[in-house]
């Protein structure tokens, strides 16, 4: 138990002293996870909207597949991506393995199903009556779209939050495709694993507290917007 106390002290020390290594790790963590979330949102929001709104043959099956991908273990993503990114693999010429870009790609794959499924749910909950009402009130097409987006905005934010949460918390994929390289591909989760391996439990707990803080802050900001209803 003394490690927990040591960890709390360690996290405060790291934050207050502005430890350059910590800030580098923090910067990379946010850069990788936020970029992955951003791309997952750009790709996932339209797909989710389409799957939630349009009724077509096979829609349930596709949604079901994405639902199943919600449980996709990050190590599996990591393993498959590694195979593809190897020098001898099909994407070997891109030289992406062991770079932050590969980690963004991995976290994108993990965040994407979350964004798609949550978005689809948000859109599918809009009732047909809503459209009838809007039309009856004489809204033109762009006004209709505006009102629709306004109606689902909370669901979309939830989708982005879920995507970000999945991205920042995974460790298996980042470890495999990033390689946990000092000053290059070391993020908070992989650092925690490394410090445990080194026997530095205090530092590991310190880092875990910082990871939780970051996660809470980002999700907190998003939730605040959600509440305010922008």
């Amino acid at each position: 138990m003394e490690f927990i106390w040591e960890g709390i002290k360690e996290s405060i020390r790291l934050i207050l002293t502005g430890d350059p290594e910590l800030y580098q790790i923090l910067h990379l963590t946010l850069k990788v996870s936020l970029t992955a979330t951003l791309f997952a949102a750009i790709v996932g929001l339209p797909i989710g909207a389409f799957l939630g709104r349009k009724k077509f043959w096979g829609q349930k099956v596709i949604l079901g597949i994405f639902n199943a991908f919600l449980g996709l273990p990050p190590v599996v993503v990591g393993l498959w991506l590694t195979m593809f990114l190897w020098r001898s693999g099909p994407l070997g010429n891109l030289n992406l393995l062991y770079t932050p870009k590969a980690m963004i790609l991995a976290q994108f794959c993990i965040a994407l199903p979350e964004v798609i499924v949550f978005t689809a749910v948000a859109f599918s909950q809009i009732s047909e009556n809503f459209f009838r009402q809007v039309k009856a009130l004489g809204a033109n097409r762009s006004q209709q779209l505006y009102l629709l987006l306004k109606e689902v905005r909370l669901g979309l934010l939830a989708a982005v939050i879920a995507g970000f949460g999945a991205a920042i918390s995974e460790v298996g994929a980042s470890l495999m495709v990033g390689g946990n390289i000092y000053q290059e591909t070391r993020v908070l989760t992989t650092s925690i694993l490394l410090e445990v391996g080194r026997g530095n439990f205090g530092l590991a707990i310190g880092l875990s507290i910082i990871l939780m803080l970051i996660s809470f802050i980002v999700v907190g900001i998003l939730t605040y917007w959600q509440r305010k209803g922008y």
Partner: peptide
């Protein structure tokens, strides 16, 4: 928000060798 995050963390990144 993104600008803020990248900006802030970017400024703090002094340790890059």
């Amino acid at each position: 928000f993104f600008l803020l995050i990248f900006g802030v963390t970017g400024c703090l990144e002094k340790g890059a060798v």
